[in-house]
Amino acid sequence: MIIYHSINDLVSLSEQLKLPMWQVIRKADCEARQVSEEESFATMKKMYQTMKQTDADYDKNLVSPSGMAGGAGEKMRVFNASGRNLAGEYLGLVMEKALKTGESNACMKRIVAAPTAGSCGVIPAVFLSFEEFNHMLEDRMVEAMYITAGIGAVIAENASIAGASGGCQAEIGSASAMAAAGLAYLQGGDNECIVHAMAFALKNMLGLTCDPVCGLVEVPCIKRNSAGAVNAVTSAQMALAGIRSAIAPDEVIDSMRRIGNELPACLKETGMGGLAVTESAMKVKEKLDAR
């Protein structure tokens, strides 16, 4: 049986079996669910294609029931096309796509939870932009999706991917770490590079609180998808440049768990602290309650 419980396990299994990391993760999936390699790959491909569909179906006119979410992805697209893009073409596109998927989720459109609905924009933003920008073969993107899934499974087992138990670091932080690892692979990084990209991304997000306005997956979640996606690119680029994390990747995950436990309840999806109790948030709440 191929079973992994840590980032170290993934790296050593990849060396022992002389298989790329994504194939180790696929093999483990085939054994766990009793499916063939082709079936597993087809399921992952469907997930990736659904992400693509969500992006393509973005409706710039949609507004969420609270009135807080909608139209930001379109504004970013227009700005990116205006010639004043600060961040470079790839990063501009990453930001635009993260907002689009995050807003689509808030407006009750179909998305892929990756790892959660609140953080569903991070991985598609990084991956779809990379595919478009570099004219990648879709199958190669699906291989990288396995890396994101394997890394996410390790984080879920050793820390958390739920805002209610770990804060936003567990949602956007995890998504960003997963995306960074996949992106490092796509750009030709080896296993060491992949796991250090993961470590950088997660370290940069440690301590992030979950304090959404009115408990809705809108503010600050949607824009944080954009920040998490850009952080994934920063992190992959550092790892690809040969920079290494001083803290071992598994220890970063363990830190995230401890920090999550130490965060007070008011900052873990209860709507009782942080941004959720600001004057502006109260005004939104009054309007919502009045309906």
Binding site: S104, M108, R110, A156, V217
Partner: peptide
């Protein structure tokens, strides 16, 4: 752990607990 609980499920938003659940 099923990796398609990590990448997935495909769902209509906005919340896995309050909508999909």
């Amino acid at each position: 752990m099923n990796i398609f609980d990590i990448i997935g499920p495909v769902m209509v938003g906005p919340s896995s607990s309050h909508t999909a659940g």
